[in-house]
Design a protein around this nucleic acid. Structure first.
Lengths: 131, 131
DNA sequence: ATACATGCAAATCATTTGCGCAGTC
DNA sequence: GACTGCGCAAATGATTTGCATGTAT
């Protein structure tokens, strides 16, 4: 049988460190490029596999802003994002989790509510000044 | 030059009607199947092209819940969703737009905030009773 | 008549997976 | 040594696109 993620690997640790060190909410491709500078033989498949393992272990989280690709984030406590629709930069927002809203929806929905996601969209200052 | 979406087409109108008639937040594939029952020669490419045109015209909206595919919705006024992580069903929530939150983030973010998205996740009653 | 839209098929792009070998426990 | 993880390359699946033809204005 398969017990995924039970053995450690240098690749997985490096991938996790790369994510820990950035606030940029990078894509798998970007993580791959970073890891590759120090482990030239890593494969993109390994990066994807480990990003999934780390996500399943709750050490990182997978984000999806509807761009057609995933982003990863080593900050796993509940927080919200602001996404620039011009350059794609993603920023963490210093807004507390809306527990009241969560509770309200929990009472409203026929079923179990386990979490929510809140994303804000717009244009960042850098892109505003460029146009 | 190209002026996309300026001429009407039976295909586009049918696609829009299909979306208007459902509350199921369907995928492009599902829309394709529906349209096909009445227009057997439509192509999937045409469905995709028109879904984008309708989205650009603001007549429908494209949704992305991180499932690896898009869903479409003919309800374009601001509203939030509940997604069942078991069966994937998407329900509209009867929760008013959180204008206060929006304003708060607008004042907080360095840049222009144009919109936000709020999705709740969990398990619907149908799936709960099955397990 | 002009130019946008379609159908078809091939192309793209992110992501996944099968396989034989390498690394960890 | 047993079993998990890796690198490589091929496969997958949603979506996009080039092109010749059809259709709306």
């Amino acid at each position: 049988m398969q017990a995924i993620g039970t053995k450690r690997s240098r690749q997985r640790e490096k991938i996790y460190q790369v994510l820990k060190k950035t606030v940029a909410h990078p894509t798998a491709e970007w993580v791959y490029e970073q890891v590759r500078t120090q482990m030239p033989r890593v494969s993109l498949g390994t990066v994807y596999r480990n990003l999934h393992i780390l996500t399943a272990q709750g050490k990182i989280q997978e984000l999806d802003f509807g761009e057609g690709l995933h982003r990863y984030d080593a900050t796993v406590n509940q927080h919200y994002h602001f996404v620039c629709e011009h350059c794609g930069i993603v920023m963490d927002l210093d807004v507390p989790p809306q527990q009241d809203l969560h509770d309200r929806v929990r009472d409203l929905v026929p079923g179990k509510v386990t979490g929510h996601r809140l994303d804000f969209f717009g244009v960042c200052t850098a892109c505003l000044s460029k146009s």
